[in-house]
Design a protein around this nucleic acid. Structure first.
Lengths: 327, 327
DNA sequence: ATTCAGTATGTAATCGATTACATTAAAAAT
DNA sequence: ATTTTTAATGTAATCGATTACATACTGAAT
């Protein structure tokens, strides 16, 4: 484990000169630089990021908080974050909170400890107070989920509009009895999508039947299944379902299929997110496509800007309704 | 951003004492400790991991290399790694190589730079030479994919046996024409599963038809679809397919369904991995279950042992055939 | 009364880099 | 020939922690 001192000794120069060569400031004479390079190669030297970062007091690490790595919605966002970060010499520290406040606290402390230069939070269950507190002193960005009244910058889409469009589309193809599978209302995106759903129904003078609205506690396939089971047991069944996440929609689809019903003939189904898998189901899923990669990439750029002390605004990206076989 | 110096000044003690309180060595007098705690709270002090790590020359970060975060097979493993690592005060640095040697090199350098204390590699496309070189000086563990003749410790399952059992099962339920959708043979797991497939066929004196063996280049849904398209176009079609990953099997299933054929009546299908999705398809997928969480957890323990300088052996975990509707 | 052991705390070196400032030598300007 | 510039390099402080060693004080043992 050679250090910069070893290199300096070997090359017969001072550590300052080695450092200059390392950071290729071209103040070093060519011959000297060559000597140093030679020593570096000979000793197989690699600079210690620890030492460097301590001095420059940055870690070049970005903390990324997600509720669950198993939700494919996040994986594409992460890809966008990672690509963009690496381009700018940052690495990401991916942390799964499991929506567990204790773990969240541990991770957020990584920023206070200066192990990470900033946070991108995608956890809708994040403790808003704690995050806002952190944001007062450190760079923080929210991606996808955000706080309408808060001060933290965010990247997101217009969930309400998207939900409205999805439900309007169901109405336009002739459905009058439209159910909703929704996440917990403590999440902003769930409330927004609910609003969009209601708005579409109201606009077309369709009644709102609370029996057709099902809130799940988490976003896993099983939750979608369970929700659908509940909806199918209604005496007066909806003929179309809007689920506010593909994962839930896929669970619902499974349940519908298992009951021997046909999608879209008996029940039409619209999801949300456009995860890869939504195109692999039988039938394939009509869904709202979120620009996930772009969201990730925008978040990464935003947090890096913040880290560099620049002012940043919020970004609202476009979504798109993708019509497939389930409607 | 208070430092340990500030705390020391505020509490009227030396930095050494503060450090002692921080690391709760109980040599500090109670009253002094209380003074220090008070100063810490007052100043909202958090120790800098950078400073600490420079001194102790560890980063308490574990690098985790995966080819693609989008493959659900890895997500469960990562969960296992993360839980286990955090328990022992390590964090993970999750890095997606995209099987791109250039990115891989960047990441592997993070270890050389001492930004990470060790690596868990799950990338089957990893440059074995480079990894072995790294392993000479730094802690390295391979998970899932490994090197039979190499010196790097690993956690894995017996892929050949698993594949053998899957195919034997297909034979036992009456199939004689069994196709294989396989990953690129440059990967050990692909070769192992191929061997298992061949072994089962041989054992039951079934002919090996190379037209029924399809190798894909990467492991995405589309690759499974494409492979299945190729197999369906055979004049003499197999009646059962063994795919060496659920992702491929799900793609294949999609293709079979799209062609109006029935699974399992027309074609039976067995996957590999038991990812969450495999229970959401229509019909649900018979598959080999890998103990993914356990694999992750074992890898994490193994790398931490290595980091601490202990000797470790290899671990081969048990798999299980999960029979569902697709056979 | 003196010595010794034990406890609590402080001093200062250290980890491995970066960088402001100082120094030196050579080239350019007078 | 002397002074001024410029270029190349070195010296040493610094980032924020940990920790070996030194020191001061207390009470017990002789």
């Amino acid at each position: 484990m050679a250090t910069i001192q070893d290199v300096a000794r070997n090359a017969g120069v001072s550590v300052a000169t080695v450092s200059r060569v390392l950071n290729n400031q071209n103040v070093v004479a060519k011959e000297t630089a060559i000597k140093v390079e030679k020593a570096i190669n000979e000793l197989n030297y690699e600079p210690s990021v620890l030492g460097r970062n301590l001095r420059t007091s940055e870690s070049r690490l970005i903390l990324v908080l997600i509720p669950s790595i198993a939700n494919p919605f996040y994986t594409e966002i992460i890809k966008g974050i990672e690509d963009t970060a690496i381009e700018q010499d940052y690495n990401i520290l991916l942390c799964e909170t499991g929506s567990n406040p204790k773990r969240e606290a541990i991770y957020i402390n990584l920023v206070r400890n200066r192990l990470a230069d900033g946070v991108i939070s995608m956890d809708p269950a994040v403790d808003k107070v704690r995050l806002t507190e952190l944001a007062k002193k450190y760079p923080v960005v929210q991606c996808s989920e955000y706080d309408k009244v808060g001060t933290i910058s965010y990247v997101t889409i217009d969930s309400e509009l998207a939900a409205y469009q999805a439900v309007r589309y169901l109405i336009q193809i002739g459905h009058k009895k439209i159910g909703l599978i929704n996440s917990d209302n403590k999440y902003l995106y769930a409330r927004d999508r609910y609003e969009g759903y209601i708005k579409a129904l109201n606009e077309f003078d369709l009644p709102i039947n609370t029996d057709w609205i099902y809130n799940v506690e988490s976003v896993r396939f099983q939750d979608g299944q369970q929700a659908m089971r509940g909806l199918l047991n209604q005496p007066d069944r909806p003929t179309a379902i809007f689920a506010d996440s593909d994962v839930l929609a896929i669970g619902a689809l499974k349940e519908i299929n298992s009951n021997g019903l046909n999608v879209p003939k008996d029940i039409a189904l619209v999801g949300f997110d456009n995860i890869d898998f939504s195109n692999m189901t039988y039938p394939t899923l009509t869904t709202i496509s979120q620009p996930m990669y772009k969201m990730g990439s925008a978040s990464a750029n935003m947090i890096i800007h913040k880290i560099k002390g620049k002012k940043v605004g919020n970004i609202i990206l476009d979504h798109e309704l993708i019509i497939r076989e389930s409607t």
